[in-house]
Amino acid sequence: MKRRHFAAACGAGFAWPASFSFAASYPDKAIRLYQGYAPGGNADAIARAVGVEMSKTLGQAVVVEAQSGAGGNIAASTVARAKPDGYTLLLATGGHAVAGALYETLAYRTVSDFDMVSTITYFPFLFAVNANSKFRTLTDLMAAAKAAPGTVSYGTAGIGSTQHLAGELFASMSMRSLLHVPYRGDAASLTALLGGDVAFIVAPPTAVMSNIEAGKLRVLAVSGPQRWPGLPNVPTVAEQGVPGYDVRSWAGLMAPAGTPVAIVEQLNAAVIKALEVPSVRKRLEDMGGEARSSTPAEMKTMVSDELDKWKRVVADARIPKQ
């Protein structure tokens, strides 16, 4: 009996130093950072801006790989199935939580199949109208929607996009009936707005800022809890009669579940250091975002809360599961 206990103790003793040694030597080769959208887009730009600085801290290249399709689900599936050794990471966005709420089945579990590393940035959406619109404020728009339910239309990047769910949450919280018109991406919804096909759109700042600066669009509201520094005179949705309204997209770093804690902590420190670099912060700000890191636990809570929120919106709006 004593010999068996001794053998078990020795086995455990040898396992711990091996694991410790592995984490201590990390990283000793390039790290792949997957993002689930087209090259050159916001997610790609965020991954590259942060990845370059992380590679300087970690001493190994962080190679960004676009694996677009299914709203980021393909890249998330790849990372969820990867070996949890810190060499395969995911640049997740707000669409990660939306997908968890919208899809009937996914090849992964939104929260439990990942170890969160750190958030990177948050950015709001803008409620924009054509410069010639009769709506001067969000209050004007809500009054029209109350007078004629279901006639005020809004365009988004598509059914199940964060923009779509932001509009549905606005309709629910303001107790208004709106007409959703989905398009294939923000560019298409913007074209529709400029052409007078919809009353307003919900879109990220990068999609509309050039037309705002050109005087072709007017912004009625910002979706976040505070005013956006890029348009400091534009009030939030919450300021205009919908208290508690808060929709922001985000980007953050995830690893496969089971990644050693020491490696997660090392990656977390590398993200924090990257976000302290002025050029990185400016790049994120230029995309409409606010650089903000977190602990792994804080990010897990945030993603879990986002998933719960969007599940409620999908159920309340009776959006068909995909």
Rank of each mutant, 00 (worst) to 15 (best):
P205E: 11
P205Q: 13
V208P: 00
V208K: 04
V208T: 08
M209K: 11
M209H: 08
M209T: 05
M209L: 15
N211I: 04
I212C: 05
I212P: 00
I212E: 03
I212A: 08
E213T: 10
E213A: 15
G215M: 14
G215A: 13
K216Y: 11
K216C: 07
L217S: 07
L217P: 01
R218F: 12
R218L: 12
R218A: 14
R218T: 05
V219A: 14
V219L: 15
V219C: 14
V219Y: 10
L220A: 09
A221N: 09
A221C: 12
A221D: 04
V222R: 04
V222M: 11
S223D: 06
G224P: 02
G224N: 11
P225T: 07
Q226T: 13
Q226N: 14
R227F: 11
R227V: 10
W228F: 14
P229T: 10
P229L: 15
G230P: 04
L231P: 04
L231H: 10
P232M: 13
P232L: 12
N233D: 11
N233S: 14
N233P: 00
N233K: 14
V234P: 00
V234E: 02
V234W: 02
P235E: 05
P235D: 05
P235T: 06
T236P: 03
T236Q: 08
V237T: 07
V237I: 15
A238Q: 09
A238P: 01
A238F: 10
A238T: 04
E239K: 12
Q240M: 13
Q240I: 08
Q240C: 11
V242R: 04
V242G: 06
V242T: 06
V242F: 12
P243E: 10
G244K: 15
G244Y: 13
G244W: 12
G244P: 05
G244H: 12
D246F: 15
V247P: 05
V247D: 09
V247I: 15
V247N: 12
R248Q: 12
R248L: 11
R248G: 00
S249I: 01
W250Q: 02
W250D: 00
W250Y: 13
G252W: 01
G252S: 08
G252N: 03
L253N: 00
L253G: 00
M254T: 00
M254R: 01
A255F: 03
A255K: 02
A255G: 07
A255H: 03
P256Y: 07
P256W: 06
P256N: 10
P256G: 06
A257V: 12
G258M: 08
G258T: 02
G258H: 05
T259M: 05
T259N: 04
T259S: 05
T259R: 02
T259I: 06
P260R: 04
P260D: 04
P260Y: 03
P260F: 05
V261E: 10
V261S: 10
V261N: 09
V261L: 12
V261Y: 09
A262Y: 01
A262S: 09
A262N: 02
A262I: 00
A262R: 01
I263T: 02
E265K: 10
E265T: 05
E265I: 02
E265W: 07
E265F: 08
Q266L: 14
Q266A: 14
N268H: 13
N268V: 03
A269W: 08
A270T: 00
V271R: 00
V271D: 00
V271S: 01
I272V: 14
I272Q: 11
K273T: 04
K273D: 02
K273E: 03
K273W: 02
A274V: 03
A274N: 03
